[in-house]
């Protein structure tokens, strides 16, 4: 190998190694900071949510809603629309959940009724113990 060609190859090798060695720290630097998984539970009294009413809460940093569905009982759903992340609101008159951004509509079980959302709202575990509702 000629000296000039050797030096060119060496320079290319060193240059690319230098660049690549910066790639990993860069990816780590811009990655979202890791958060400790929270297993927070939330409890409410049944009389705080009469039939047909809803209560907005924040569960493990996620905006959520607990609805007391007439005849079907309580359900805890994420308020984060599965389309593009806006927060759905409870429409008591129509008995559904509406996303104000792109007009996605969900029923009170969290299933998509109309609009562009691709999947149902996330449901959180909920159980009723006596007069207490425990979510999470």
């Amino acid at each position: 190998m000629k000296r000039r060609k050797f030096l060119k190859s060496l320079l290319a090798l060193l240059g690319s190694t230098t660049l690549i060695s910066f790639a990993y720290p860069l990816v780590r630097f811009i990655a979202p900071p890791s958060r400790k998984a929270e297993v927070k539970r939330l409890s409410l009294q049944k009389n705080e949510i009469p039939a047909g009413e809803a209560r907005e809460i924040v569960l493990n940093n996620t905006p959520a809603i607990i609805i007391n569905r007439p005849g079907k009982g309580y359900i805890a759903l994420s308020r984060v629309c599965t389309h593009l992340g806006c927060l759905v609101g409870y429409n008591k008159a129509k008995g559904n959940l509406i996303c104000p951004c792109h007009a996605g509509i969900f029923n009170l079980d969290g299933k998509v009724l109309s609009g562009p959302p691709p999947k149902p709202l996330t449901e959180f575990p909920l159980r009723v113990e006596g007069e207490t509702i425990i979510i999470g």
Partner: peptide, 9 residues
């Protein structure tokens, strides 16, 4: 307000 999406955005 991260907990309320405005009605008309």
């Amino acid at each position: 307000n991260p907990l309320m999406t405005p009605a008309y955005i």
